[in-house]
């Protein structure tokens, strides 16, 4: 579980996060949503320890990240998997080498053991025959799956995803969403996803945190988001006519 308490972050005069508190539970897909510029990416980078913050605290299973020693931080980071918006695969390595990379850095496994594990997770993300390809030879969806494989290869306790569906067609986006959801439940990890994708919100949002102007404007789940009266949330989530209709039908069906 990750507990965030009163988190504040500024860049110069720009106050980006203005006191966010929430918790992200184990075995659940936690979604952070909000408009562009609402502070989602800064929030995620604070969680990952890539940005220092001025006030508040972030605790992983009770351990406050900022108070850890360098060695403890390194150990903690070895438990974190991250899927970046652009996949962030290493261009100079094959897909298999990309997936093996965290194992090379953090374990003492032999090369064959690492290859076995890499192939296992590549199979898990349904990329059996892509081992020897370079990232540039893979499609956007494949690259995202490789990024997920790299993120989970070292059995992380926490999985972070920044816009995992951006640039993907709707069908591939659903495949990626389902994969993240399955992995979260299968390995019982704490997953935090930054997204704009309303399909993801409706499909896999065990917990949804809505940010607006650096503040938490609402939190709930994929079930409660249909019924919420919070206008800020409904304006954002149901901004398209299609989603307005879906919401109306859902409420009618369930009333």
């Amino acid at each position: 579980m990750i507990e965030v308490t009163n988190l504040e972050k500024s860049f110069g005069d720009a106050h980006i996060l203005k006191g966010i508190s929430t918790t992200f539970e184990k075995g659940k897909t936690n979604l952070v949503i909000g408009q562009s510029g609402s502070g989602k990416t800064v929030f995620l980078k604070c969680l990952l320890g890539l940005f220092d913050y001025e006030k508040g605290k972030i605790a992983y299973e009770g351990q406050v990240f900022a108070e850890l020693s360098e060695a403890e931080k390194r150990n903690m980071r070895a438990k974190i998997g991250m899927v970046f918006q652009g996949s962030a695969l290493f261009d100079s390595m094959t897909i298999e080498e990309n997936v093996m990379f965290p194992l090379q850095m953090f374990t003492k496994q032999s090369k064959s053991e690492m290859q076995d594990r890499a192939n296992f997770v590549l199979n898990r993300v349904k990329l059996k025959d892509a081992n020897k390809k370079m990232p540039s030879e893979a499609s956007g969806g494949m690259q995202k799956r490789v990024a997920i494989a790299r993120a989970i290869v070292n059995n992380p306790k926490y999985l972070f995803c920044d816009e995992p569906n951006s640039g993907l067609d709707p069908k591939t986006a659903i495949v990626i969403d389902n994969l993240i959801k399955e992995i979260t439940e299968e390995y019982n990890i704490t997953t935090v996803i930054n997204t704009h994708d309303m399909n993801s919100v409706m499909e896999i949002g065990d917990k949804i945190v809505f940010l607006k102007d650096g503040l938490k404007a609402w939190e709930g789940s994929k079930d409660t988001i249909f019924r919420t009266d919070n206008e800020v949330v409904t304006d954002f989530v149901y901004s398209s006519n299609l989603f307005k209709k879906v919401r109306r039908m859902y409420i009618e069906d369930n009333s």
Binding site: G49, A78, L89, D91, P102
Partner: peptide, 13 residues
């Protein structure tokens, strides 16, 4: 720019 350095830093490298 492709966040590969961020990926290294997240891994604690």
């Amino acid at each position: 720019v492709t966040e590969q350095i961020d990926a290294l830093e997240v891994m604690g490298i």
